[in-house]
Design a protein around this nucleic acid. Sequence first.
DNA 1: CGTCTTTGACCCGCGC
DNA 2: GCGCGGGTCAAAGACG
Length: 559
Amino acid sequence: MSSSKRKRADIDLERRDDDVDDGSGDHQPGEAAPRVQKEGQIKEGEAQAKEVVEVVVDRGGDGSKEEIKCGTQQGGVMEEDKQSPAASAGNDGADGIDDEESGGGGTRAEEEHMVEAAPGDGDGDHDHTAMAQDELSTMQEEMEKMKEENKMLRRVVDRTVRDYYELQTKLAAYQKQPADQEPKETEVFLSLGGTAPAAAVAEAKSKEEQAALRPSVGSDDTDDGREGLGLSLSLRTSSYEDEARRDVVDGGAPDIVSDVGKARGYALLESSRMSPPASGDLAAAGGIGSQQGVNAANRKTRVSVRVRCQGPTMNDGCQWRKYGQKVAKGNPCPRAYYRCTVAPACPVRKQVQRCQEDMSILITTYEGTHNHPLPVGATAMASTATAGAGAATFMLLSSTSSDAAVSGGPPPASSSYLSPYLQLNSSSQYHSSASPLMSGNMGGGGAQHLSMFGHSSALASQPATLLKYPWPPNPSHGGAAGLGGGKRPFWGTGGVDDVRPTPLPDNAGTMASDPNQFSAAIATAISNVIGKDGQATRSKEGESSNKWGVVVESLPPHE
DNA sequence: CGTCTTTGACCCGCGC
DNA sequence: GCGCGGGTCAAAGACG
């Protein structure tokens, strides 16, 4: 596997949850809802509010690598999308950079956020007022520092962009050549929360740049509980082939997603497309259309998601069947192997394993592309997202996430690799209310949303009714039943109309304070990234091939 | 009764 | 060529 040939998309979602713990060492993928409950018995109620989500999305599909980091920020978050690509193009280096306005890289944002939070938390003790002021001054200083850093980052970004364009040019030339042999890699990282998963880090090749980009990160570390509010989007693309057209090229910048230290919680989605399909189209399409079924090419596509959640699994929205489990050498935690059961011959498989460094982090790797149509809802969502360029999919952060929810009924994801809906089980730290996320919807049908933040509350702003899932909330979908009896294709269930991605907040700026907004910001960032692919892929019947039809949607707080 | 999870064994690829 | 590790298969058990 020459890395050069494969594409990768990584999405890191970092969330922090205090809450739920499966406790069980085994992380069982949510698939078996019923069982999960038994074993894992996650306590929704326990989920406490803080969650930090870091989403790193790597898209390999097109041959371009993109990194997007989203950190919770106070200031306007999103907007970076566009920049992100550029940044990413620059390669890894760019990662954290992005939002100029927001204050710089997501990391910084986080720090800022943290800073504020810290003082704020101070309760209202009057006695502490003086101290608070001191802290404020300190914070201001930090802010200034951060600003400076931001400037530096901007420079880096500019440089990156420049490089990006150059690469693009080269890429274009390169693309003209036969792609078959050419390897292409695209990596896209979305990191929310500013922290990057260790694994991601490991991958990251250029740490220096990262450091440069995210100086503040360290600060984050300090605050575990903090929601880093910074959303940074960086795109890194390295594509050697045509597929990559859309995005940028990157050179092999590794994913840099971030520092491990922060392992607090994050979800990382990483998709890497290893093989360019024999037919270039496939790759471009995301391999969707082609039923190639179990093509090797399909298998090569990989997406990994790292989510920090104590919950046993992350729900991706698809139906999976566990076919094996093994202990990997470097990680004491067993790795579980799942196969997509949505369609009989679906080549897609996924591996679920907990992060050694941070057991609360669940790493899910998807491989291959679905050879069956994705759920309409998912598709619709994906399309919506892509179209809007805004939000691609629903990402829900649910702290509740019991596996059950997850396992519940996962309709296929919009994207071939990832289901549009990813559920992160974990309680959001930030939300005091524990886990509301998945609330009703999730529970019953098993929401297939990717929940990034536990703050359901934030999301809550939107009426639950708004949240509609591609598939009916029927219990049947949900539980094991969904799987068992429910092997029926998910796509049959839902109507496109049903799906309504929550509109992203117009003002990114507002996001900062609100978790909801934050999530929205993330969604936006993701959507941007995804959008590209999504559109492309969607072009073909909107099947799963989209790599990233991800829509971030906030759910109403659960009760 | 049917389906899914669990678990051990087998096979394949890679590195030394 | 050997050993190691990863991934997959298949039988048995458990659960709904």
